[in-house]
Design a protein around this nucleic acid. Structure first.
Length: 221
DNA sequence: GCGACAG
DNA sequence: ATCTTGTCGC
């Protein structure tokens, strides 16, 4: 499978997504969780350099176990729906720098809440063959009702007759986050893990810390 | 044809 | 994503 061919045309990328989507698993196939990773990508030099950051937190406790950063030249532009082709290559390189693989990964972006059900979290999960959860700050596709105001409450994100994710109130009076299964777990399990990793901020700790490391803002120790 | 559009 | 300080609100 030519998953390593990242310099694809939009047409080729879309064709590849249609072929890979059927491989994504949304049934729980997740073992004991002791290491939870957060991954995010940032850019430097006017976007010419892609910076992938991965943090690994302990469960329970959420203490920092590892954190790595990988930089490389940016190869693809950002195109809605094709985000994974721009970010996954660098993310995979970053994962090779870890001392041991995580049991669960939270990704900044959508999982199956994607036009072809293959958002960046699903694509990365398929490649790593590790359970992944998509944690996005905004909507790509699908519709939903208003989200209840209480922290932890959520409403389903739907596309036609399919439920593709959850719009979660991770913090009161703050815009909700879009949660969707990436790979090897279902929606309920995905939401449960995100809620468990929630601090007082909008984003769960894994993604929040990876975000800071990727964009090199503030200290996170 | 006219919007919408993860990061 | 990124450029960017202080400021309003919960």
């Amino acid at each position: 499978m030519p998953l390593h061919e990242w310099t694809l045309s939009p047409e080729e990328a879309i064709a590849l997504q249609w072929r890979l989507a059927p491989r994504v698993e949304c049934r729980d196939r997740i073992g004991d969780v002791h290491r939870i990773a957060g991954i995010d990508i940032g850019f430097e030099q006017n976007g010419e350099i892609t910076r992938a950051a991965v943090v690994v937190l302990a469960w329970p406790g959420l203490s920092m176990l590892e954190h790595v950063v990988h930089r490389e030249p940016t190869r693809m532009p950002y195109i809605p729906g094709l985000l994974s082709f721009r970010e996954v290559p660098a993310a995979l390189q970053a994962f090779t720098l870890l001392n041991s693989p995580p049991d669960l990964v939270m990704v900044d972006g959508q999982g199956i809440a994607h036009p072809r059900r293959l958002g960046v979290a699903s694509h990365l999960g398929l490649w790593l063959d590790i359970p992944t959860i998509g944690v996005a700050k905004s909507r790509l596709c699908g519709t939903h009702d208003d989200v209840p105001p209480r922290r932890g409450e959520w409403t389903p994100l739907r596309d036609g007759d399919e439920t593709i994710g959850a719009v979660l109130r991770s913090r009161q009076s703050v815009k909700p986050v879009y949660i969707s299964p990436g790979h090897r777990l279902g929606l309920e399990t995905a939401v449960a893990w995100v809620v468990r990793c929630l601090g007082r901020t909008k984003l769960p700790e894994p993604t929040r810390l990876a975000d800071r490391l990727a964009s090199r803002r503030g200290a996170f120790l």
